[in-house]
Design a protein around this nucleic acid. Structure first.
Lengths: 148, 148
DNA sequence: TTTAATGCAAAGTGTTTGCACTATA
DNA sequence: TATAGTGCAAACACTTTGCATTAAA
């Protein structure tokens, strides 16, 4: 519980440093995401928070802001839009390319793709019940020298 | 061009075998997806087909039907919903999940993610000069039994 | 000739925006 | 006390549905 306060405080600093304010509503939204520890849809958050007088528009507006500040990430699936905390996520993954002719191995940094894959991990976790902790990917083919 | 007629005919057989009819509208929607060879949003299709008197509702209804029949697949991203032919797609890659506790290995089928990754492969090929022929992905974590 | 499929318009979703008011820094 | 943030309701965009009509088998 102390940890949650610390994390919220950390996010508050980010907000203040960018000229935004930490409000009761933002505090509650972040706390909810921290406590539930999974992705939520906007209306699920609203359901949870409306008794505290927090409006749906506020939730949408803040999720948008949190996305811009890289605090939250959006996940799109057939069921709709989900949101989850991105900032304290420890998820990482590596991608390697291996040339099937000369055997050379290279690291690949494709940020958007990694981001995308990590998003889908949530979907897979939901569908399967697995808990994914690590992802690695190997691409095989020909490097530019061996392509000829 | 002959190939397109053949493919449409193949889909017609599927429709008829399930008690559906092949209409001008369905023909046009499938032809559009075959010709453009990429994913389209419903309103893009409407834009393309409304001069033939095809309504937006018809497009939505048929995309839904085609999805059920595994003819078309839906892709959800931040920009919105896309649709593409699934039935003649040669795309493949394998994804495995390995439980780090019990060692069990399972196949993962997450079409949208696969589609996404294959798209990024084009980007990586462009950036690196590599030619990617095969992709495999391993996810590690805990299966539902070992999570407990 | 039977029954599935269509176009249109109306109704539903989920999401964003304008505005007067409120609360944070 | 200045200005960012809020709730509410209206507006919006996308999608689905009801119904009278059309067309495929």
């Amino acid at each position: 519980m102390e940890e949650i306060k610390e994390k919220i405080n950390y996010i508050k600093k980010i907000l203040l440093s960018k000229g935004y304010k930490m409000t009761i509503q933002r505090n509650e939204i972040i706390k909810l995401l921290l406590i539930t520890e999974k992705h939520l849809m906007a209306d699920e958050m609203y359901h949870e928070l409306k008794n505290k007088g927090i409006g749906l528009a506020t939730i949408y507006r803040n999720l948008e802001l949190f996305k811009e500040l890289n605090i939250v990430r959006e996940i799109n699936s057939i069921e709709g839009r989900y949101f989850e905390l991105k900032i304290f996520s420890k998820k990482c993954m590596d991608i390697h390319f291996k040339c099937s002719k000369c055997g050379k191995i290279e690291d690949i940094y494709e940020h958007d793709m990694i981001y995308n894959i990590l998003n889908y991990n949530r979907v897979i976790e939901n569908n399967t019940g697995y808990e994914i902790k690590d992802v690695s990917m190997i691409m095989k083919g020909l490097c530019n020298k061996c392509r000829g």
